[in-house]
Nucleic acid binder design. Structure first.
Lengths: 205, 205
DNA sequence: TGGGTCGAAATCGTATACGATTTTAGATGA
DNA sequence: TCATCTAAAATCGTATACGATTTCGACCCA
């Protein structure tokens, strides 16, 4: 695995964990020194993430974590509502015990942050579909909103409903009940979208 | 606009036009010389396109136009079927005369290749939705299959049905008949998917 | 005190350079 | 003739270097 791949994975992981606050500038020299490499591979890793929409760039100023509007959140969750049900429906008949166990593990909250655990859970549900492009698109959508989800879970702590929905969703998957799983997923996404949009529409600061 | 952006746009355009045959290796030095720049910006442009799934990379060997399997085609058109109806439904109530005119122009076949004209047509239909991320994802899906669409249109020349469907789709959009437009779009995508999958399943050489 | 200007520091974008890996072609021997 | 080994060429990955642009603070002046 090349240096660029390592750098990309490290930055993507930070994004998925919601560790990078919106508006933060990612300095090439700083990241390069931190990783003990020159800035060329760091630049390429950042460029890749910009190309995928996770980061934004301004010429001669650098690369930063984008600030999302409520309209952006609507789009991102709109895309997730378009994409995830398709992945789920393909997955359900193909899922194995290993997939369910992986989802269970994510539910238990092994991940260091809520956003990362959340992605691990959804990924476990969709992996059996074996649509790598679709999964990558969905991962990027998760990573894009993660910084905001972390912000409002710190303040609102509204994690319980999401957890109950996840548990019910996994149960429906185990029963291979596509109709029911689809219904729960849509409610889940609509609920999450509503919370985030409300947060973005009514900023506290 | 930076050198990287220029290089990226040039390569993406070639992809959308289907000018790059599957399996072709994109040599950094060659592209750099061709564009009159060093290979650093060329590398970054290629990395961006790899990150978006349009190109593939092998460490220490370079970057090439990926060869698609029939399964890949199923995924790509499955994603388009998930994505495009959502974009279209959002667009239809918002479209203006300018959007219809742009679609009309694409239908007339101004673009240099079928694949590029096809993308211009679809883009015109979805632009009013103002979902830039969704549009970018869709563009990349179009670009990924473009090399193959060019290959089989050269041999089969089955362009007529697609054109008729496009015309009917535009007519439904002008009438703001979302139901009908949705139905035509799905038939269109299923037809295109079937042709490509058949081509990939039964390779001529 | 407030606003504007200038210069130094920081940062980015790209070119050049070089070591590492892979490919290719030719020579060798069975 | 064909397989295998070897050395040269091609290509990639990364570091270093430098010019260009932006940012930021000190200074001046009203």
């Amino acid at each position: 695995m090349s240096t660029v791949d390592n750098a990309q994975r490290a930055i993507l992981q930070s994004m998925l964990r919601g560790e990078l606050r919106p508006g933060l500038w990612l300095r090439q020299d700083e990241l390069a020194k931190q990783m003990g490499v020159s800035k060329i591979p760091v630049r390429e890793a950042l460029q890749r993430l910009v190309a995928r929409g996770l980061l934004s760039a301004e010429r001669n100023r650098g690369i930063f974590v984008p600030t999302l509007s409520a309209e952006d959140a609507r789009e991102i969750f709109g895309l997730r509502r378009a994409l995830e049900p398709v992945l789920l429906r393909r997955s359900i008949p193909l899922m194995t015990e290993a997939d369910w166990a992986e989802a269970e593990e994510a539910l238990a909250g092994q991940g260091p942050t809520i956003t990362e655990s959340n992605w691990f859970f959804h990924r476990a549900l969709y992996r059996a579909a074996e649509w790598s492009r679709g999964l990558a698109i969905d991962r990027d959508l998760h990573a894009t909103v993660a910084p905001y989800v972390m912000l409002y879970t710190e303040e609102l702590g509204g994690k319980n409903r999401s957890d109950r929905q996840h548990a019910a969703l996994l149960k429906a998957c185990r029963a291979r009940d596509a109709e029911r799983a689809d219904k729960i997923l849509m409610e889940h996404l609509e609920g999450a979208a509503a919370v985030l949009e409300d947060f973005l529409d009514n900023p506290l600061p």
